[in-house]
Design a protein around this nucleic acid. Structure first.
Length: 931
DNA sequence: ACGCTCACG
DNA sequence: GACGTACGTGAGCGTA
């Protein structure tokens, strides 16, 4: 039956991984009806195989064929160079389970399916094509991967399955400028950003081909590099010789592997209809099964209209607090752990003594594996006491031992094969981290909702349960009380706690079941998996670390402010000729506009006089009173919000301040910082800026701050495609001065600060969705003049107007806008009538810019811990476009180098920005010096 | 609880 | 033609 492979034979080698990824990205995220298994990529893969089989006729038909796959992520190339393919984004989670199914599919078609641990598919393909060529046969490599082009020639060709185009020697020469035998030389020089092959900096394929053609081959070129005329190019090749040689070994395919099979094993075989139909039926593919059955001339198998799983639809199981179990001993917990291990996932929630996860203690844990079936494990509830209003300090009966419980749960919480599902998992993960338990892997329903529904509503459990489960959760208020008489959760009677706490886990699981498949439908899986979820452990770590704040510095400042304020207050009372509360805008307005008779006062919608800073500033040019009020207000702000309140936030144990970041707070993707907010520490005035002196490094360490320079304007230049802006960033020109020069026809070297200031205001205005009124108010110029500026700006940069119009149009059509990384920000008000409309439009214009910048720094933050792993450095804070680190003095330069690199390249490889990102760095003993 | 004001990017 | 208007946040205070 088998014929010896040789002359007249034609071997087809199919690049299986390329098929899989193309199938995955080409198809919507289908799931198998009966159990929700993701099968979109498998379906696409099967279709491609079938189309291949159907098309395998005529003069180029194969006699032998194999589909070759990659196996394992670590290959001999990683041993040579640990950064090899390090840029690769992680495999999407819904693709992973489909990988083995593509092997099964290949075998079901009765096509040889080959993979070898530690080797890339490319190496196997190289080895097989050499063997086939040496035996005198023809080879067609079905792939469009340029890394395989080195194999072309002597009867070996490639076939791009998308374009159905054959690539021979000429095709390779067209692509690389050299013949197939010199392709690796060109690749070694040009490098490859996709595979992270370094190559020679500044040399691309064009230059590389030029050099190789001139010197013959890479070795001669490197030996004779000194002869190159261009000084920069010459130096690059001399300096990077080792790196270039390494690159060559990385791109050179191994064509002499020992293979545990031979060419003869790859002879084409007909599929066994039973096996193939069986597989297709199991996958529940209806259309393709029917088509293949027709081709094979067999009856298609009956695919049952799926019985909708044992997992009931969310609304099918009513919420019933009676059903929740109280777990009070190891035996009962063991039953739950077994159920969790069977499932592979668990919804979890912790109850604690407070909301501050740096201080709060664990009180109990709830678990849920199936809607309606949840338990609560009380651990440290206090016993009730009849004679004492506040209860006793004795531990209540009917609880399992704290340590025993944690010892049992720890392996589950840390098991990489068990998914832990939570609502706002950062909170629970921090509680567990303090107990030395690293919870992973996780899913977070709050973040899922945020990825899908940002802009529509908030993402708290109450909101989500109401909206998506039509169920109002048991409120916590009646359990804890309010105000002074409020109690902590450990004082809640256990039976009440069970009903409340277990329900939270139940709700979380039901939300997860609903949200998980929706992520695909809404096309935000990647956003969730790369921008939301991975931030949880990163932020948890930063928050737990905190930043050292020097109490004495704050305290001294506070006293100084208090003295000055007392003086100002006396002065103001004298001017008003009566005592009044300077902190009351209503009273200040009364004195100025009623008593003193100042002109130009406006009232707020509540009817009281409005006294914001800009109004007072205008009045201050004529009068002392508003000037003193402004002085007083500034001091009051600094004292109450910063020097006083910050001291309250210094953790007694750590001596540091631990903010909490909300990941799903801001609609645009920005983080928000609370308790305390460390994203609004003063800097704009000298007096306020000194508060940053209180944020200090430990002895021997240094505070380092790195911030993106003009990131939003750079992103605007990219998104709106403004060449003049791009060029200015490329040339490193002062961007506001450039704008001013363009608009007002002033040469750069004659620029005055005043003109530049106006242009700067316009640049920012554009980002915010400019209006003549807003700009006029900001610049304190007549509205007509402001409108003139704007008109002129749009004349000079017509792309900006187009971006604004297009963005609003997109929002009106789709109800959302998007960042470059796919984050969606819903814009439900965009079609509203009336004054709302203006707000919604400007928000829609701003969101993609602000949001893209937020995505960029999120990506940098996700990569940062691994990047600075080897340094004695910690990332402490994020302030929208800035990251703050604490690092041992000796490692400052290393940290700046690495962190800057991560930040500047954060958009790679997902988005290629036309404008480079630039990062400024500062360092010092405290935050004021570092900035 | 809400409005006003003001700190930041 | 009039309406209001820069985008995104959080915190502290006064006032109801």
């Amino acid at each position: 039956m088998t014929t010896k492979f040789g002359k007249g034979c034609h071997l087809h080698l199919i690049d299986g991984s390329a098929f899989i990824f193309r199938a995955y990205h080409a198809l919507p995220p289908l799931t198998r009806k009966s159990d929700g298994l993701p099968v979109g990529a498998v379906s696409g893969f099967v279709n491609m195989l079938q189309r291949y089989v159907e098309g395998n006729t005529g003069p180029d038909a194969a006699t032998h064929v194999a589909v070759i796959f990659d196996k394992g992520s670590h290959t001999f190339r990683n041993d040579l160079y640990d950064q090899y393919k390090a840029n690769r984004e992680a495999m999407p989670e819904d693709l992973r389970p489909q990988i083995p199914l593509t092997r099964t599919a290949t075998k079901a078609f009765n096509i040889a399916c080959e993979e070898i641990e530690g080797f890339e598919a490319d190496d196997i393909i190289a080895t097989l094509s050499h063997q086939a060529r040496d035996a005198g046969g023809r080879v067609t490599i079905v792939s469009s991967d340029k890394d395989l082009m080195q194999l072309v020639g002597d009867g070996v060709e490639m076939l791009d399955p998308m374009k159905n185009k054959r690539i021979d020697r000429d095709g390779v020469a067209e692509k690389f400028g050299v013949g197939p035998d010199r392709v690796v030389d060109v690749q070694a020089l040009a490098g490859d950003s996709v595979d992270n092959v370094p190559g020679a900096p500044g040399i691309g394929i064009k230059t590389a081909a030029l050099l190789i053609n001139e010197y013959g081959d890479l070795e001669s070129l490197l030996d004779r590099a000194g002869e190159i005329k261009q000084p920069k190019r010459r130096q690059t090749l001399i300096d990077h010789r080792a790196q270039i040689e390494l690159s060559k070994t990385l791109v050179q395919l191994d064509c002499a592997m020992d293979l545990p099979f031979g060419l003869d094993d790859l002879e084409i075989r007909d599929a066994d209809p039973d096996v193939l139909m069986g597989f297709l039926a199991e996958m529940e593919f209806r259309t393709v099964t029917k088509r293949i059955a027709e081709k094979l001339g067999v009856a298609p198998p009956v695919i049952e209209a799926a019985p909708v799983a044992e997992v009931a639809a969310p609304e099918a199981v009513p919420f019933d607090p009676e059903k929740y179990e109280c777990v009070a001993d190891a035996a009962a917990l063991d039953v739950w752990i077994t159920r969790i291990r069977e499932r592979g996932y668990v919804a979890i929630d912790t109850e604690t003594t407070g909301l501050n996860e740096m201080i709060a203690d664990l009180v109990g844990i709830s678990l849920c594996v199936e809607p309606g079936q949840a338990c609560y494990i009380p651990l440290t509830h206090k016993a009730a006491s009849s004679d004492d209003l506040f209860g006793s300090d004795d531990i209540a009966a009917g609880q399992m031992d704290f340590e025993t419980c944690l010892a049992m749960l720890k392996p589950v919480l840390q098991d990489p094969a068990i998914l832990k599902i939570g609502q706002n998992m950062k909170y629970d993960a921090k509680i567990f981290a303090r107990l030395d338990i690293a919870v992973a892997p996780i899913d977070d329903t709050m973040l899922m909702s945020y990825a899908m529904n940002a802009g529509l509503h908030n993402h708290g459990m109450d909101t989500l349960s109401d909206r998506y489960l039509a169920h109002t959760p048991i409120p916590i208020k009646p359990l804890l009380g309010t105000g002074k008489s409020a109690i902590t959760f450990d004082r809640v009677p256990i039976e009440k706690a069970v009903a409340y706490a277990a329900e939270d886990a139940d709700i979380t699981l039901r939300l997860w079941q609903q949200f998980k498949p929706q992520l695909h439908v809404k096309r935000v899986t990647t956003v969730y998996e790369t921008l939301e979820r991975p931030l949880v452990p990163v932020l948890a770590q930063m928050e737990r670390h905190g930043i050292k704040v020097d109490r004495d510095t704050l305290s001294r400042m506070s006293n100084a402010f208090a003295q000055k304020m007392a003086g100002l207050e006396a002065e103001l009372h004298e001017m008003a000729e009566r005592p009044f509360n300077v902190q009351s805008p209503a009273q200040v307005g009364e004195i100025m506009f009623d008593q003193m008779g100042f002109e130009g006062g406006k009232k707020t919608k509540t009817g009281q006089w409005s006294t914001p800073a800009d109004v007072l500033e205008d009045l201050a040019t004529e009068h002392d009173f508003p000037a003193r009020v402004l002085d007083y207000r500034q001091l009051q702000k600094l004292k109450s919000t910063y020097t006083d309140a910050l001291q309250e936030h210094i953790n007694a144990e750590t001596g540091r301040v631990h903010t909490s970041y909300s990941i799903a707070g801001a609609n645009t993707g920005r983080l928000a910082s609370t308790d305390p907010n460390l994203q609004n520490i003063p800097i704009r005035t000298e007096e306020g800026r000194r508060i940053r002196e209180a944020f200090v490094a430990e002895p021997g360490k240094v505070i380092v701050a790195l911030d993106y320079s003009q990131i939003e304007l750079r992103i605007l230049a990219h998104i709106a495609g403004i060449d003049a802006l791009k060029q200015a960033f490329l040339d490193g020109i002062d961007i506001h001065a450039m704008t001013a020069s363009e608009m007002f026809d002033v040469p750069l070297d004659e620029m005055t600060p005043e003109v530049r200031r106006q242009a700067k205001a316009i640049n920012f205005g554009v980002i915010y969705g400019i209006s003549g009124f807003g700009l006029a108010r900001n610049l304190r110029i007549p509205r007509g003049e402001a409108q003139g500026f704007i008109d002129r700006y749009f004349e000079r940069f017509p792309g900006i107007r187009k971006y604004m119009d297009d963005t609003v149009g997109f929002a009106k059509e789709h109800g959302y806008v998007q960042t470059l990384f796919g984050r969606k920000i819903n814009t439900p008000e965009i079609n509203a009538k009336g004054p709302h409309a203006g707000f919604a439009k400007r928000a829609a214009i701003n969101a993609p810019i602000q949001g893209t910048a937020a995505d960029v720094i999120r990506r940098a933050m996700v990569r940062m811990p691994a990047a600075i792993d080897t340094l004695p450095a910690k990332m402490l804070l994020q302030v929208h476009d800035e990251l703050i680190f604490e690092v041992e003095a000796a490692a400052v330069d290393d940290l700046i180098g690495i962190a800057r690199d991560v930040m500047e390249n954060a958009s790679d490889p997902a988005v290629k920005l036309d404008v480079k990102l630039a990062v400024d760095a500062g360092q010092g003993a405290n935050w004021a010096e570092a900035h």
